[in-house]
């Protein structure tokens, strides 16, 4: 049995090699960040463990696992063709759009540009329109729901749950 086959048998075969290469690199960078920050922690006085020991240990484990993930991905070459799901069309554009909209929604409230009620009505209406791929009927239902939920939700959270929402 070849060494690569043995490694593949032990650690399993990578089914998502492209993603795994990215995952390994991101995890390794994150572990390096942990080590860098842990190095800034002063040594312990009375505590035998100190505050830096666990972050260092976890960073080393992460580096080791990232290396294994990378090796698994590289051993999986030649990489299979990208997955194609024929059952339905995947919509990364809609997913990116909803994330961008969510960031904008939180951002305008954080910056104090809009209060919770107005921002929520806008987010709900636009979010529904985007997820419904701008089909007219759903857009209109979404708009009505947005107004009801925006006003009703604000009243519910502030008057019933006493939450001090962004104004």
């Amino acid at each position: 049995m070849r060494a690569s086959e043995r490694l593949a048998r032990i650690f399993g075969t990578s089914h998502t090699p492209r993603g795994d290469v990215g995952l390994a690199l991101v995890v390794a960078a994150f572990a390096a960040l942990l080590l860098w920050q842990a190095a800034k922690v002063p040594p312990p006085f009375f505590d035998p463990l100190g505050s830096a020991a666990v972050p260092r240990g976890v960073a080393v484990v992460l580096l080791l696992l990232a290396a294994i993930v990378l090796v698994r991905a590289l051993l999986a070459r030649p990489w299979p063709a990208l997955e194609r799901d024929t059952g339905y069309r995947r919509r990364p554009d809609v997913a990116c759009g909803i994330v961008a909209l969510a960031v904008a929604y939180v951002g305008v409230m954080a910056a104090g540009v809009l209060g919770f009620m107005v921002a929520t009505i806008l987010f709900l209406a636009l979010g529904t329109a985007l997820l419904a791929t701008f089909r007219r009927r759903q857009v209109l239902i979404g708009l009505a729901l947005a107004v009801v939920l925006g006003i009703g939700g604000t009243l519910l959270f502030t008057e019933f749950f006493f939450i001090d929402l962004p104004r």
Binding site: I98, L124, G127, T128, F157, I163
Partner: peptide, 18 residues
């Protein structure tokens, strides 16, 4: 789901903020 997901996100925002 187009009607549900944005409302669920708003509930998350309120939950975290609270």
């Amino acid at each position: 789901r187009a009607l549900m997901l944005p409302a669920i996100f708003v509930a998350c925002v309120v939950g975290c903020y609270a």
